[in-house]
């Protein structure tokens, strides 16, 4: 069984935000939030590096561990999803997540925190696949359609990869070997805790 993973190759990421708008486009992300961010370190200086970050779909997901209503589940492919009907928008998962992935759309006026929203690896949520309800609540379910997350599929430089962890790491490993450098992809260790 595949284990779905994102990997952002910082040697290729150019901070073009294609992943961010692709995600907005595909998932109709609520106004005011982005499920994916491009973060730049050392902005404007030598050694500047950018990396595109969203939910890393951790093997041992800290968000799920702390959720007071247990609305998280992990699919067979290792995608971490949640049930918005259970979510109470408490914000605890935001603190637990090392990547700041969970977001809370401002539901009404006066900043009431809405149900948590985060990257679904384009796999929707616990509603009938590719139904209108699923789309409106979670966004498009590409996995069910046999496709992969649009952010990675549209990445300008193929820096962001999304798919089975073994295939992804194989591509990345080849690139690193070609470049003769060492792997420096951010977040890889967290997402793959000590490959048991």
């Amino acid at each position: 069984m595949a284990r779905m993973k994102f990997l952002c190759d910082t040697e290729r990421c150019i901070e073009c935000n294609g992943c961010v708008t692709a995600c907005n486009n595909e998932n109709n992300v609520p106004w005011g939030i982005n499920r994916r961010h491009v973060v730049t370190l050392g902005d404007g200086r030598r050694g500047e590096k950018s990396v595109s970050v969203a939910c890393m779909h951790c093997t041992d997901a800290p968000c799920a561990a702390v959720c007071p209503v247990d609305c998280f589940y992990t699919t067979e492919d290792g995608i971490v999803l949640h049930d918005k009907d259970l979510c109470i928008g408490c914000g605890y998962c935001f603190y637990a997540c090392p990547f700041g992935a969970p977001q809370y759309p401002q539901q009404e006026a006066f900043g009431v925190r809405g149900k948590m929203d985060k990257c679904t690896f384009c796999a929707g949520g616990p509603l009938p696949d590719n139904s209108k309800e699923e789309f409106l609540k979670y966004g498009r379910n590409r996995i069910a359609e046999g496709k992969l997350p649009l952010c990675a599929e549209m990445c300008a430089t193929k820096a962001l990869l999304a798919g089975d962890g073994t295939v992804v790491s194989e591509i990345y490993r080849k690139r690193v070997m070609k470049r003769g450098g060492r792997p420096d992809a951010l977040g890889w260790q967290t997402a793959y805790p000590a490959e048991k």
Partner: peptide, 25 residues
């Protein structure tokens, strides 16, 4: 209603930047 990557194009192989990924708007 949606955009798909144009993997077959030899120019972009499906890729887009922020602008191209948002043209549906």
């Amino acid at each position: 209603i949606g955009q798909e990557p144009d993997f077959d194009s030899p120019i972009n192989l499906g890729a887009h930047c922020a602008k191209g990924a948002s043209v549906r708007d």
